[in-house]
Design a protein around this nucleic acid. Structure first.
Length: 271
DNA sequence: ACCTAAACCTGGGCGC
DNA sequence: TGCGCCCAGGTTTAGG
């Protein structure tokens, strides 16, 4: 599920609801998701909630932080008297908080993970350390152009490579390429500078729209308050196979596989 | 360096 | 209603 806009929406919700709460206890029922370190969180107060790529980071006032990766079906849901969310059969980790609140980690497929690091070492964590720059933060057009020119791989595969740029996933990669009228299979270094600039703008646009609509609840994703987002009602290309292209109206959207991932494009207007 | 398939898991949707 | 098959927002790993 969660790509940059979804994780950012959760981050915003947690920032609003979680900061100031003390963690009283952590119950883990699926060890592979949260194998170690939970005891280091007990007694800590939440002071900030950050996001690096698709990773959520919750910082405590005791020098420790925990990192969460939601993979495909993970959910982080806050519960309090004002937001009476309940655990369900997919709840595998429960954080007990003060003031009658809780935080649930739910994950149907159990691919997600939670790990504890010293706050000062978060950036050194193996996955985080490899993340490339973020489109809405430190990726400039100049860096983007340079990045594309350094690879012959299909442009869509490059957009999904978290070590090249972090946060873009399959939904937003498909939509950005459609918006920029670029065929996902084009070699990255074959894009003209004007095309690269258009694509850069398109990536920023779809990510901002994703955030504006609180993410895409196509399947499992929900906000920290347990509500669905609505970007799925605004998909440009993702999941549109067989439908007429809403821009040119001349052809049906095609679906094919690229790098093992479902890829959606208009055969007429994406060149 | 690049590519593909499989692996990690489970639920939902579809055709019959 | 049930069954089998295919698909899934991510990432890693094995093998070519």
């Amino acid at each position: 599920m969660p790509e940059l806009p979804e994780v950012e929406t959760i981050r915003t919700g947690l920032e609003k609801h979680l900061i100031g709460h003390r963690i009283l206890g952590v119950e883990v029922s699926v060890a592979k998701i949260f194998p170690q370190g939970k005891e280091k969180l007990v007694g800590g107060n939440v002071i900030s909630v950050r996001r690096l790529g698709k990773v959520l980071i919750v910082d405590l006032d005791n020098g420790f932080s925990f990192l969460v990766h939601l993979k495909l079906t993970g959910q982080v849901v806050f519960s309090s008297p004002g937001f009476p969310n309940q655990p369900n059969k997919f709840t595998h980790v429960v954080f007990s908080l003060d003031k009658g609140s809780k935080l649930f980690f739910n994950d149907s497929r159990k691919f997600g993970w939670i790990k504890v690091e010293k706050t000062t070492d978060v950036a050194k964590e193996a996955f985080v350390a490899k993340l490339g720059p973020e489109p809405l933060r430190d990726l400039t057009l100049e860096r983007f152009v340079k990045l594309l020119s350094a690879s012959r791989r299909p442009i869509k595969i490059l957009l999904l490579d978290q070590t090249k740029m972090s946060g873009v996933g399959n939904i937003y990669a498909n939509d950005a390429l459609w918006l920029a009228k670029i065929d996902p299979r084009r070699p990255a270094n074959g894009l003209a500078s004007k095309e690269a600039e258009t694509l850069f703008g398109a990536i920023l646009k779809v990510l901002k729209d994703g955030i504006k609509y609180q993410g895409a609840s196509d399947q499992w994703y929900v906000t920290a308050e347990g509500k669905k987002g609505s970007y799925q009602e605004h998909f440009l290309a993702y999941g549109t196979q067989g439908k007429l292209c809403v821009r040119c109206g001349k052809a049906k959207m095609q679906k094919f596989f690229l790098g093992g991932r479902g890829t959606y494009a208009c055969p007429v207007c994406q060149k």
